[in-house]
């Protein structure tokens, strides 16, 4: 049952709202307003003067081949991270769902990576993948692959995708496993009686019943890969070599904080903000659908 408490007057309710409102204004609305304002201004490199630039920053942005390339690169990166993290999670969850010995320990082991902080994960992978001292690099050398993600564009992308997906696999695994376990056993039994096995049973019965979970996870993973992988990428490649791993998020940082092109950086932030809002709306949409079932 819902419990409601009605306070008389307006002073008490207002007082109770102040902390939340203050935090929202201070941490979200104000910076957002500053960013939006900066996106329509042109500032000199020393930040001493500003002139109104209208939508010039945005026009410049979308006609800049470097920015368009970053969009394409981000799409590839996000697609790869989402695909890899979800694919692996589904594969692992299907095995964890089976009646196997030691399944409890197996499940626990798969959840661990989620407890590792992103920055720490970045450092761990930086060490593992390090061309000279990394364990993975050494292994690859044994296999005859010249590994140096600091020089090779493709290898750099593989490295950041792998490191970013690694952590997300755990998160996805939990959801997919829960999704699989919420499928009634008798439906799987019915499919067995109908003669469906292996891949066919998975594709025609399990996958459709997992679809709402997967749709939700795709959005979450896209948001994660677009906005939360900055730490991992910065720790591993700083967007390099060249711009090979410079996603939109990394570029905002590069242009604004490092190169001090505040107008362009702010315009990029506003674009990303719009993107986050869109994806969040989508995520809530799927959450509601999951909840409503």
């Amino acid at each position: 049952m819902e419990r409601r408490t009605i306070f008389p007057g307006w002073a008490t309710p207002a007082l109770l709202l102040v902390p939340q409102m203050a935090l929202t204004v201070l941490l979200f609305l104000w910076p957002t307003a500053v960013a939006v304002r900066a996106s329509v201004m042109r500032a000199d490199p020393f930040g001493l003067s500003e002139t109104f630039a209208g939508l010039d920053n945005f026009t410049a942005l979308f006609t800049d081949p470097l920015y368009l390339a970053a969009i394409g690169r981000t799409l590839v990166f996000c697609g790869a991270v989402t695909g890899l993290a979800l694919g692996l999670a589904v594969l692992l969850a299907v095995f964890a769902d089976a009646d196997i010995r030691g399944r409890g320990a197996y499940r626990a082991a798969l959840v661990w990576p989620y407890a590792v902080a992103p920055a720490a994960a970045g450092v761990i992978w930086a060490l593992l993948l390090h061309p000279q001292i990394g364990g993975v690099a050494g292994l690859l050398k044994h296999l005859g692959i010249a590994w140096n993600y600091k020089l090779n564009d493709t290898q750099a992308m593989i490295a950041v995708v792998g490191a970013s997906a690694w952590r997300q696999v755990s998160y996805n695994f939990i959801f997919v496993l829960a999704g699989l376990q919420s499928i009634p056993r008798t439906i799987i039994d019915a499919a067995r009686m109908d003669g469906a096995r292996g891949w066919r049973r998975f594709r025609t019965i399990l996958l459709p019943m997992l679809a709402p979970t997967l749709a939700f996870l795709v959005v979450v993973n896209l948001v994660y890969s677009a906005f939360e992988t900055f730490g991992t990428i910065e720790a591993l490649t700083q967007g390099g070599p060249g711009r090979a791993t410079q996603t939109l998020m990394v570029k905002v940082y590069r242009d604004g904080v490092v190169n001090l092109d505040l107008g362009a950086s702010a315009a990029q932030s506003v674009v990303l903000m719009a993107l986050v809002m869109g994806l969040t709306a989508l995520q809530f949409h799927f959450l509601r659908r999951r909840g409503g079932r």
């Binding site: 039994d189 019915a190 019943m209």
Partner: peptide, 14 residues
């Protein structure tokens, strides 16, 4: 080559 009718129908919901 056996068919079974389950207690709670077990129809494929999708």
């Amino acid at each position: 080559d056996i068919a079974m009718v389950f207690q709670h129908y077990a129809l494929y919901p999708h």
